[in-house]
Amino acid sequence: MIFETFQNMLKNDERIQFTVTRKGEQLAVLVQPVLQGGLDEKASEAIQSLRAALAMPLYVVTNPQALDADFPRSLADYAEMREDGHNDLKDVMSRIKEAGKQAKTEAAKNNQPDEPAEKSRFEDASHQDESDEKPAEIAVTDKSLF
C-alpha cells in the first residue's frame, strides 16, 4: 500500500527521497519531494507559493509501532495534499497561458491598420478622370502669349 501511494503521488519523472533514521527508540521518517526544473524569478507569487507547497516534506518522528499503524494513512493524506497542489498549479498555469493567448490576440488586432470606409480616386488606379487620359487642348489665338 505504501508503494502504491508513492506511485500515485508522483507525477511522471518526479522523484522523492525517502529516508528513515533511528533516533534512540524512535524512527524519523522523511519523505522529501524533489521538484523538476528551477523557478523563474518572474514567476507570479501564486506559482511560487504552489511550488513551495509541493516541495514541503512529510516528516514524522515516532515509535515503530505507531509508524506501522499510522504511517500509511499519513502518507495517503500527504499524497492527497500534493495532488491538490498539482491541480492548483495546473489551473494557474492554464489561466496564465489563456491570458497570454488573449493578449497576443488583442495585440494583433490593435496592430492591424484600419480599413478606410471608402477609397479615394487617387488610391484606386482603375478610376481616373477623363482629363488624365488625354492631353488638354489649348486654343491658341493671336491674343495669347504663346
Results as ranks from 00 to 15, higher is better:
120 S>V: 05
106 E>W: 15
126 S>I: 01
138 I>S: 07
137 E>Y: 11
107 A>H: 03
104 K>M: 04
101 K>E: 01
113 P>D: 08
109 K>F: 03
113 P>H: 12
128 Q>G: 01
112 Q>L: 15
113 P>E: 11
128 Q>N: 06
101 K>P: 00
108 A>L: 11
134 K>T: 05
126 S>R: 09
101 K>S: 01
117 A>F: 05
124 D>A: 13
137 E>C: 00
107 A>D: 11
105 T>Y: 11
132 D>T: 02
118 E>H: 14
112 Q>G: 04
109 K>V: 04
103 A>C: 13
101 K>Q: 10
128 Q>E: 05
138 I>P: 00
119 K>R: 07
120 S>A: 08
111 N>G: 02
138 I>C: 01
132 D>N: 06
117 A>W: 15
123 E>M: 04
119 K>A: 13
103 A>R: 06
121 R>E: 09
125 A>F: 07
117 A>P: 00
120 S>G: 05
118 E>C: 14
138 I>L: 10
139 A>Y: 04
116 P>E: 15
133 E>F: 03
106 E>N: 06
136 A>P: 01
116 P>G: 09
121 R>C: 04
138 I>G: 03
111 N>F: 13
139 A>Q: 08
108 A>E: 05
117 A>Q: 05
106 E>F: 04
121 R>W: 11
106 E>S: 09
125 A>H: 07
113 P>G: 10
139 A>W: 13
112 Q>I: 13
120 S>T: 10
103 A>S: 07
104 K>A: 14
123 E>T: 13
120 S>L: 02
135 P>E: 04
127 H>M: 15
128 Q>S: 10
129 D>I: 01
100 G>H: 12
132 D>V: 01
